[in-house]
Structure formats: C-alpha cells, structure tokens
Write a protein that binds this DNA or RNA. Structure first.
Lengths: 148, 148
DNA sequence: CACAACTCAGTTGTCCACAACTCAATCGGG
DNA sequence: CCCGATTGAGTTGTGGACAACTGAGTTGTG
C-alpha cells in the first residue's frame, strides 16, 4: 500500500536542486574572475595548501582523475596554476598557484561571504546544515561500499 | 582579519558533495533499469501526472529546455516515453509514458526506499533536512533575482 | 487584418562528472 | 635483479547543466 513518493517530497531531489541553486548563485560572481565553481574549489584547496598532487586534490574534492585532469588543464591554460612533474616520483604531478591564481584569494573569500549571507541563515544554522550534510554523505558512502 | 575559509568548512561544498554522493548511490540501482538519475526524476514526475509538457517538466525539475530536451530525446530513444506535438497549440509538446515506462514505477519506488534507509536517518530527520534545503534554495533564488 | 512581442521546444558550444581504459613509473616478493 | 602487481595521471565516450541562440507558432494591440 506504498504510494510512489512525489518528487517534491524527496530529500534527494531537494539536495540535487539546492546544490545547483547555490552553484548558480556563485556563477555570475565567479564569471567575473573567469572561474567555474569546480575550478574555484581547486583554488580554495590550493590557497590552503599549495603544491598538492593531482590525486590529493581529487581526494579533497571527491573527484576522480578523469574529472580533475581536464579541470587542471583548463586552470593552467587560464594562467591560474602550474603543473610540475615531480622528479623523485615521475608518476606524480604537483599543482602550484601562479601569482595570478594566488592574487584571487581575497576576492574569492569575499564571494563565499556573499553566498553565505544570501542563504538567509545564521552562521550557526549553516554550520548545523553543513554537519548534517556531511553525516549524510558519510552514511551513504559507508552503505555504498557494502552493497554490490 | 578574515581567514580564507577552508573547503571542508563550507556548507556549499558539503551540499555539492552530498548531492553527488546520493546520485552515486542511486547509480548502480538505476543502471539496472537503464536510467540515469535525471531521467529517473522525469519518470517520477510523469508517474505522478502523465502528459506534462516539456516546460512543465522543466519547471518541476528546475531545468531549462536546453537540458530537458536532450534528456527527453534519450528517454524516448530508450522507449520509456513518447513525445506528441499538441494540435491545439503546435508549440507545445506533451510527454507520455509508454507501457515500459509506466511499468518501472514499482521498482522505482523501491529504489527510493533503499536510498532513504541508506541515509542512516529517520523519516522525520529526512523530512527536516529536506525542508531545510528547500528553505535554503528558496532564499537563494530570491537573492539571485535581486542581484544583477 | 497586420505585425511586433512573446512563448515554446530545440540546437550549439563549453564545462563538469564518471566509467572504463591506457600507459608509464614504482614497488615488492622470490 | 626481475617481473607481476600496483599506483598515478591522463584519455575517451556518454550524459547532464546552462548560456546563448534559433525558428516556428501564438497573442495582443492598433
């Protein structure tokens, strides 16, 4: 006697929609810097720790090499990062900010502030939502590996 | 004196990651039905109300015609839906489930149950999270239209 | 009726996401 | 030291997303 759930009742759909909405809010601001949202995430990661390898970036962003490699290629073509093949292990490539890429940090920081305030939530509410989402993601990843 | 926020502290990044994680959980189950997650959303919408127009589907899924049109083309090629140009207004195209598409409803319903339980959250918690996300999306869309 | 404005679906081009794969470099056990 | 297994980055192919645009069809107003 289970009714098929409606789209609007689904938490997963709300998640999917919210994710696209927030990226859409970032878009016009990032456009002015010549960045997309995933590219911005790479820079945020490098502002924190420069010189990460491609796979370390993939781990942090939860993206595989098939996504990260072309992303970095475009960031390099745009002059924001540089890739260096490491001499001690020729398989590894480290990614380094250029002066241009490093210089975007303060503007990037401002953009995250603007987006945060546009959410209409307090800092504490945002932190609570973030933690809830991270629990959700963690639970899912745990189940994911156990199923076939 | 504002430090640049770290990636892991950002609610937006948590949202982006959670969204991809849940779609990743759906993926192997939907693969067995020959569907992707956005295609599944179209079918959910049609299981509720068959014969919607392309733009009505776009409104419900919050996707523009440039995304929905090719999506429907693939769903039609796979034999799950049919598109009909309406005779009373030749601009409109209505989308109808085929017998094959309608027959997936019960399996589709099961999949949403499995995903819900994999979240590790109770029904009430999921509802609360969903409502929180919908508030978030609504707040963002409101600000979005006011900014240039 | 005429015709400009608008609506609707679809196309084009760019960038992400991910599966499946390639290939070189490195590691580890015999 | 050798060779099979593993690791790391990258490529290829498919399917979203979305901006910008196209063109047919419809509507409203003079």
């Amino acid at each position: 006697m289970e009714a098929t759930p409606r789209l609007r009742e689904q938490a997963c759909f709300a998640l999917y929609t919210a994710s696209r909405a927030v990226i859409g809010l970032y878009r016009p601001m990032l456009d002015r810097l010549g960045l997309t949202y995933p590219q911005f995430l790479v820079l945020m990661s490098l502002w924190e720790t420069d010189g990460r390898t491609v796979s370390e970036l993939g781990d942090e962003l939860q993206l595989d090499s098939g996504t990260v490699s072309p992303l970095l290629k475009r960031l390099e073509a745009a002059g924001f990062v540089e890739r260096r093949r490491e001499s001690d292990d020729e398989r590894r490539v480290t990614v380094h900010l250029t002066a241009t890429g490093a210089a975007l940090e303060s503007q990037g920081c401002e953009i995250t502030q603007v987006v945060g305030s546009a959410s209409g939530m307090s800092y504490d509410e945002l932190v609570a939502l973030r933690d809830r989402l991270n629990e959700f993601t963690h639970a899912i990843r745990t189940r994911e590996s156990s199923n076939e």
